[in-house]
Nucleic acid binder design. Sequence first.
DNA 1: AAGTGGTCTAGACCACGCG
DNA 2: GCGTGGTCTAGACCACTTG
Lengths: 231, 231
Amino acid sequence: MSERTSFRTIRDEMARRIAERRWLPGTLIPGEETLAREFGAARATVNRALQELARAGLLERRRRAGTRVALHPVREARFVIPLVRQEIEAKGAVYQYRLLSREEVGPPEIIRARLGLGGRATLINVRCLHLADRAPYQFEDRWINLDAVPSAREAEFESMSPNEWLVKHAPFTDAEFTFLAAAANADEAALLQLSEGAPVFVGERITWLRGQPITLVRMVHPSSHRMVTSL
Amino acid sequence: MSERTSFRTIRDEMARRIAERRWLPGTLIPGEETLAREFGAARATVNRALQELARAGLLERRRRAGTRVALHPVREARFVIPLVRQEIEAKGAVYQYRLLSREEVGPPEIIRARLGLGGRATLINVRCLHLADRAPYQFEDRWINLDAVPSAREAEFESMSPNEWLVKHAPFTDAEFTFLAAAANADEAALLQLSEGAPVFVGERITWLRGQPITLVRMVHPSSHRMVTSL
DNA sequence: AAGTGGTCTAGACCACGCG
DNA sequence: GCGTGGTCTAGACCACTTG
């Protein structure tokens, strides 16, 4: 209501100038000081607006060089990564969890390499299934680094999924996500009630606690799965 | 070097307290005023650190109620969405573009519905291929709303891809992305040199200019494609 | 060397939402 | 109502780059 000069107002006005091509791609826009005077706001306020637009990819800013309208709006998309359980319950479906196997094994070469672990590392492999309204929703194949999370040796994962257990017991500081399409192998096909070779949507996540790898998880969905965002 | 009290320092210290479980999930943490005194910083500085952690999903903040450590770190991932050309050139590969077809057609029901358009809307359909080092990289199937971008009627798209043309001529304010896995149809399989039914990674994007739909594009990649982010 | 963005401070007022 | 976060201001100094 009060329409006080807000960083939102300023941000949106500048976005409009870019959208309406009053500020053309590649050109320099006025400096913060000038804009602050124009909008009748403090420089810090203008700065906040400019920073948001820069993070959105609409502007490129460099010290001394000034701020210019991005030539190619390399925009970013933000995806929310919830727990499977929440994802399913948010759809209004009934969530179920089924443990398939839990083994303490010597690390396969590929997994070791992905996690950057030496040969003596011990890992737990947990395979499980998440269901929505009794239909298979996600097959989870997870590796947990026992050196990083020794208490995982005592966890059974029979009623609580490794995902939720880890949230409670093993904090992380860094994560990397990968998304890809693949063909279901025999195992995955059977579990997800697909035919072998059917396309599946795969998400992989590795998490670290200050450089030490915690867990690697592969999450396999039927191809009906969609990951949506709006910017 | 100078290790002045920076919002980064404060942010990282607070992230550490959460990771090390000195601040437990679900509990209230001290107020901004208190933290500012503790860190010897201004409240605005602490505020910025707290806001970043909240946006990352580690904290939940509510007026009057205070700030608490999130129970379920519903974290978000940010993906950069570049132009295909940039994506390919960033890999050090040679980019090539090939126009397959360009038709002004009455809108198919499905496309109209996706864009929320009435029956009289006219669209251009452009199909093209993006290659990296002479190998098919992405098949693009695009619909452009001529009511929103009338000048597209004159565009040939023979040497410039619709993507780049639109960047230059049709600004947008909103976008929605969807990612999914699918089986290649005969068309896609032939173009991407895959066998029919092979899994493909599909990205779809719709863009609007202040509510008016501009374009809908379907981008199909071979299953070797990976979309990676780190948080 | 100088100009531009990056950040910090101290103080202030506002707005939301719990009690 | 009132305490907490949300934002704004005015001023200052710093850091990075480019000419």
